[in-house]
Design a protein around this nucleic acid. Sequence first.
DNA 1: AGCGGGTCCCTAACGCTGTTAGAGGCATGG
DNA 2: CCATGCCTCTAACAGCGTTAGGGACCCGCT
Lengths: 208, 208
Amino acid sequence: MPLTRDDVVRAAVEVIDERGLAGLTLRGLATRLGISAPALYWHVTDKRHLLDLVAEHVLAQLPARRAPAPGEPVVDWLADGLRVRRAAMLAHRDSALVVAGNRPTEDAMPAIDATVAALTGAGLTPGESVRVLTALGSFLLGDVLETQAALDRPVPDTPADPRAHPHLEAAAADMGGDDERFEDGLSLMLEGLRARLAARAATGVAPV
Amino acid sequence: MPLTRDDVVRAAVEVIDERGLAGLTLRGLATRLGISAPALYWHVTDKRHLLDLVAEHVLAQLPARRAPAPGEPVVDWLADGLRVRRAAMLAHRDSALVVAGNRPTEDAMPAIDATVAALTGAGLTPGESVRVLTALGSFLLGDVLETQAALDRPVPDTPADPRAHPHLEAAAADMGGDDERFEDGLSLMLEGLRARLAARAATGVAPV
DNA sequence: AGCGGGTCCCTAACGCTGTTAGAGGCATGG
DNA sequence: CCATGCCTCTAACAGCGTTAGGGACCCGCT
């Protein structure tokens, strides 16, 4: 049975999961698939193209965006979507590096459009909605990027840090892990968003 | 006069500014400096090491972190620092890619420590302060990353988008540019932070 | 005066990468 | 029986980061 493009993409994801993005070479990938390296060029135009497909594949694995449950605050619904996206990315090594720089695929647009609709429905202007959504996306990307970068480059076993930075030292105890860090930043943004929505509601501006 | 490590780093920054990170090769850099490629290995242990130095160099170009002016709200002071950092990064092409994955240099630590001190002074716990600071850093990194990625990969002249995504279409008019996007996200996080600080002050918890 | 050691650079070469050129085998359908 | 796609092959190229090993130069010591 001949190889499909999807086989190639899936194998690439496996290689990245095992060896990291830097460990993905066309020759290695081809050998794993039992074909020769140039044969990959039949399925894919480019390594860059392959990475685009990998990014798409990783993001496509998350469940179809559910509509907000009746009575569910928009902000909570938004937060849930972000957590799902984050989980999908953290499930694959170096995914942030792969995803970074890929503008949203055409078939990711309906979900984005729906989210923008929800935000404008809650009282933001359309431009504001897009900006807020992009900001949340930037935060998510940056967070996952740093988390995964820390995995790739393990700590240099903290050589000398006696009491040069007392406040950082004090923080070490209750700093928490990656999830706490994300949740705390997220709650910051959502709190700000809630405040803004409340302000809009108070001034009685109807949703545009 | 012999070449110094700083000459090498500065030249590398120039190359990245002109040709992008992908356009930086050791051979090309060496030729620009008038030496042979292996000679670079006397000044630098590795290409990875060179990039670390470049990242350091870019971030070191920002003015020494000023202390908050008397009476200046901590949050405003924080925002100002972030804007300065963002400007420094946007001044150099692909800087986000270079900086990503570099844990803070040892001599950037005092400034971080001071900022944590300011935040705990304002009422956060030490761990909270670090998390908040990291979250702001993640947002900054993600924002710059996406901004610069958009520059590297110019738009595909929006081929087909008639009215498939009406809300996005509606947002196109007042979406604003990169700066507005950043400022909007930033104000979200800062508003959340302000709210949290206010809550702490209200419950009368003394700064730890 | 001569020697040693550090500094800064060289040429040559290795193994690896993404990628192209061009050919071939193997089905299917007219 | 031939043609047309599909899918893969071998051979090769230019370019990459990096290593091995050597050679000038200069400065301080004996």
